[in-house]
Amino acid sequence: MEKDIQNFLGEQLNNNVKLIVNDARTNELLLSKDINDVFSSASLIKVPILLAVLDHLENQNQSISQMVKITPDNRVEFSVLTELEAEEATLHELLVWMIIVSDNTATNVLIDLLGFEKLNQYFIKIGLGHTRIRRKMMDFVQLESGFDNTTTAKDMALLFTAIYRGELLSKKHSELVINILSRQRINDSLKRYIADDIKIAHKTGSLETVEHDVGIVFTEKNDYIIGVFVTEHTNNEEAKQIIGKISRIIYGHLG
C-alpha cells in the first residue's frame, strides 16, 4: 500500500498533498505525509464546531430541539437556509445542514451561539493543537486580512478517531455525530472511485486553492480513518480526482 501511494504521489509534482491513514480500532498509523503542516481548514472546521455545540448542550443540559433565530447578518449565498428564507431553525436542523450540505448560514449561526473564544477553548481542550477558528464562513474580508481557519492532518485524524471511539460526548450524541457525518451529500472525493456501497462518515472542505476530505471508512475487514488534503492547487476538480484516486488505492488494500 505504501509503495503504491508513494508512486502515485510521485506523479503529483504540481500539487501539495498531505495524507494520514490509521486503523480506527487500534489507532495504528498506517500512512502519513506532512501531518503536522498547518493549512486552511475550509469547511473541515465544521466538524469540531458540531462537537463543541453538542458538548455545550450536554454541559448546560439544553435541548437539541430548541429554536434558534437566523439573523440577516448570518445569511450567506449557496445555503439551503438562505434559499428557504428561514428565520429560525432547531439546533438539530442547523447541525445537520452544516454537515451534510456544508451549509454556511447554519455554520455562522452556530458560531455566534458559542463565540470564537469558547469554540477555540473547546478545540484546545480536546487536543487539537493547530485547529482554530478566526472567521465566519464566506467572510472573505477577514480572509484577505489574514484571519483564516486552520487545522492539520494530525488534528483531523485525532478528531475522527475520538469520534469513532465515542470519547468526547455521551453515547447518544456520539451516535448522532456518526449518523450526521454518514449522511454527507458531498461525495465527489473519497467516494469518487469506489463502486462498493460502503459507509463513510466524513466531511469535505473546499476553497479556491484547497480541497480536503477526511472521515471514517467502515468495511467488513477494517474500519479506518483517512484524510487527504490538497493545498496550493490550481484546479479543484483535479484535486478531487487526486483525493479519489488515493482513497481508491487505500480501499483496495484495506477494504
Score class of each variant (00 low, 15 high):
46 K>R: 07
160 F>N: 01
236 N>F: 09
184 Q>K: 07
21 V>L: 01
1 M>P: 00
138 M>K: 01
113 L>S: 09
243 I>E: 08
112 D>H: 10
37 D>Y: 08
192 R>C: 00
227 G>T: 05
222 N>M: 15
190 L>K: 07
46 K>Q: 08
63 S>D: 11
139 D>L: 02
190 L>R: 08
167 E>S: 15
105 T>I: 10
114 L>V: 11
5 I>P: 06
9 L>T: 05
202 H>R: 01
186 I>W: 10
243 I>V: 08
238 E>Q: 13
53 V>I: 14
245 K>P: 01
90 T>K: 06
30 L>I: 15
191 K>W: 04
165 R>Y: 01
98 M>H: 10
36 N>I: 06
220 E>R: 12
214 V>K: 10
59 N>T: 13
133 I>Q: 00
57 L>M: 07
130 H>M: 03
23 D>G: 09
53 V>T: 13
66 Q>M: 14
49 I>C: 10
3 K>D: 09
192 R>M: 01
181 L>H: 06
138 M>T: 12
38 V>H: 06
253 H>A: 13
154 K>D: 12
171 K>M: 08
163 I>A: 04
111 I>E: 01
113 L>M: 15
90 T>N: 00
208 E>I: 13
6 Q>V: 08
225 I>R: 08
152 T>V: 05
125 K>W: 05
170 S>T: 15
54 L>Q: 10
17 V>H: 00
30 L>Y: 10
242 I>Q: 03
93 E>A: 15
73 D>L: 12
130 H>K: 11
161 T>C: 08
248 R>A: 12
24 A>E: 08
88 E>S: 15
96 V>C: 02
198 I>G: 01
86 A>N: 02
224 Y>L: 09
126 I>V: 03
46 K>H: 08
109 V>N: 08
73 D>N: 14
109 V>S: 12
10 G>K: 04
81 L>K: 05
89 A>W: 03
176 L>H: 07
113 L>D: 10
86 A>K: 14
202 H>K: 11
230 V>A: 02
61 N>C: 00
38 V>S: 00
121 Q>I: 03
176 L>V: 03
234 T>F: 07
163 I>N: 04
179 N>Y: 02
209 T>H: 02
147 F>W: 00
131 T>G: 05
22 N>A: 04
202 H>N: 13
73 D>H: 13
165 R>G: 13
42 A>N: 14
40 S>G: 12
225 I>G: 07
238 E>D: 14
181 L>S: 00
61 N>V: 04
20 I>G: 13
169 L>D: 00
99 I>E: 06
242 I>G: 03
168 L>A: 06
170 S>G: 14
15 N>E: 14
49 I>G: 09
134 R>H: 11
156 M>R: 01
48 P>Y: 05
143 L>D: 09
207 L>K: 00
2 E>L: 01
184 Q>H: 05
249 I>F: 09
112 D>F: 01
58 E>N: 09
185 R>K: 15
144 E>D: 15
115 G>H: 11
8 F>W: 07
64 I>T: 11
119 L>Y: 03
167 E>N: 13
214 V>F: 05
